[in-house]
Write a protein that binds this DNA or RNA. Structure first.
Length: 408
DNA sequence: TCTGGGGTCCTAGGACCC
DNA sequence: TCTGGGGTCCTAGGACCC
């Protein structure tokens, strides 16, 4: 999709059309999540600190992200795409691969299918997209970039893009080799710096290097992978229904936190949110990871893998707080995060009343809480309600959390 | 200028097992 | 006295993507 979040905001408020628009955190620590092409004409880009964006374009309109709204538009987009082929691999809210090998009899060749997709996406969602057509995933991705609109000079409207870019079989290398090496999927700033030391600027430069030199510079796996991509070799299939591997929440605070009490409350709140999303997704997980970023931006993670998968916020919180207890917050904490990985499909629904009494009932209790929230609203049960007393006492391993009262 | 939040994948070392 | 080879799992960190 073209400038997806910003385009959704324009759709919701047409008076924003044609203005430099920035979706993202406006605060001192905010960054740009997405911006309109008019904003890009001032040099504003995704991931840029909002303060800098504001300096570049003081009259830009800032709006905070409304991710549920983007999610619902993403669902509509996905519905359009799956009407062309079931082989749709979503890679972000606003981006997907489609394998249309089997759709040509019905829809025509790549260029016709791409044009039909663009028209249908616009008709059904009101949003513009760009489509790349090629014989492999990564080339199609690069082609879609080439099809996008381009920002004009500061303050001017964007130049329309091609909309559809086809890289015909046989013309792959002619398309690929002049591109800057950073255009390759998987070449970020760190890799680019390393390649730069070898004088590699374009994809063609990389292709011309002996494989041994590339693997020497980048390591075996990444070296082989990127060298193959530079020769347009990419055998990866479009994979629909990829299983989610982790679910987490993290938050950067407007000001640093130093008090352990506050951090424990925050960890509890995040663990509860993660638990809700685990159950929404129908999964449970064995590895709980706590992430802490300090005032100087140094970042640590601490994780623990438990014997049985957890899905309840309280169970996630118990581990997260144990991990937190081993962290010294005195340098100042600017970000805290909790995530769960090692996911498995949700264990059985039955309420096991094992002799150990406590923890086995947590999933059932958590689902009962879901039901109460569904009927009476999210505010009916806050995270602290789920823990007896002040909640902050939840630290000792194996401490029983759920008495008969709560279970009921 | 001062760096979000959601993720995926890879590497390296250590514990452990046979 | 000097210590194999193959494998799995876990932890921590880092690069990268949108």
């Amino acid at each position: 999709m073209d400038a997806f979040y910003a385009a959704v905001e324009v759709l919701a408020d047409p008076t924003l059309a044609g203005k430099p628009l920035i979706v993202g955190g406006p605060g001192a620590r905010g960054v740009v999540a997405s911006c309109s092409y008019e904003a890009r004409s001032y040099g504003i880009r995704s991931a840029m600190p909002s303060m800098r964006a504001r300096r570049l374009c003081p009259h830009a309109v800032f709006v905070p992200g409304r991710y549920e709204l983007y999610h619902s538009h993403s669902k509509r987009l996905h519905a359009v795409l799956t009407s062309f082929t079931p082989l749709v691999e979503g890679i972000a809210l606003d981006e997907a691969f489609l394998d249309v090998t089997g759709s040509r009899r019905l829809w025509g060749e790549g260029r016709q299918i791409a044009a039909a997709i663009r028209a249908r996406v616009l008709a059904d969602t009101g949003l513009a997209c760009s489509v790349g057509v090629a014989t492999s995933k990564f080339l199609a991705k690069l082609a879609s970039e080439a099809a996008k609109p381009r920002a004009g000079p500061p303050g001017s409207p964007p130049a329309p893009g091609l909309g559809v870019k086809v890289v015909a079989p046989g013309s792959e290398l002619a398309f690929l080799h002049p591109l800057p090496v950073g255009a390759l999927w998987g070449v970020g700033p760190a890799t680019q710096r390393r390649l730069d030391r070898f004088g590699i600027r374009t994809v063609g430069d990389l292709a011309a290097m002996p494989l041994a030199t590339v693997t020497g510079a980048l390591g075996e796996a990444q070296g082989r992978h990127l060298h193959a991509l530079a020769w347009a070799r990419d055998e990866r299939a479009v994979e629909p229904d990829r299983a989610v591997k982790s679910i987490g929440h993290e938050e950067t605070y407007a000001t640093d936190h130093y008090a352990m009490d506050t951090l424990r409350t925050e960890a509890l709140r995040m663990a509860d949110a993660v638990g809700n999303r685990l159950r929404e997704a129908g999964v449970a997980g064995r590895t709980i990871t706590l992430k802490v970023r300090f005032a100087d931006f140094s970042t640590i993670t601490r994780s623990r893998t438990v014997a049985r998968p957890v899905e309840a916020g309280a169970a996630v919180a118990r581990v997260a707080m144990e991990l937190l207890d081993a962290v010294d917050p005195s340098p100042g904490v600017r970000l805290l995060g909790v995530s769960v990985s090692n996911l498995v499909p949700r264990p059985g629904e039955q309420l096991r009343l094992g002799e150990d009494g406590g923890t086995d009932r947590e999933p059932a209790v958590a689902r009962a809480v879901d039901e109460v929230r569904r009927r009476f609203g999210d505010a009916a049960v806050g995270p602290a309600t789920l823990l007896r007393g002040d909640g902050l006492a939840v630290k000792r391993r194996g401490e029983q959390q759920w008495g008969p009262e709560e279970a009921r």
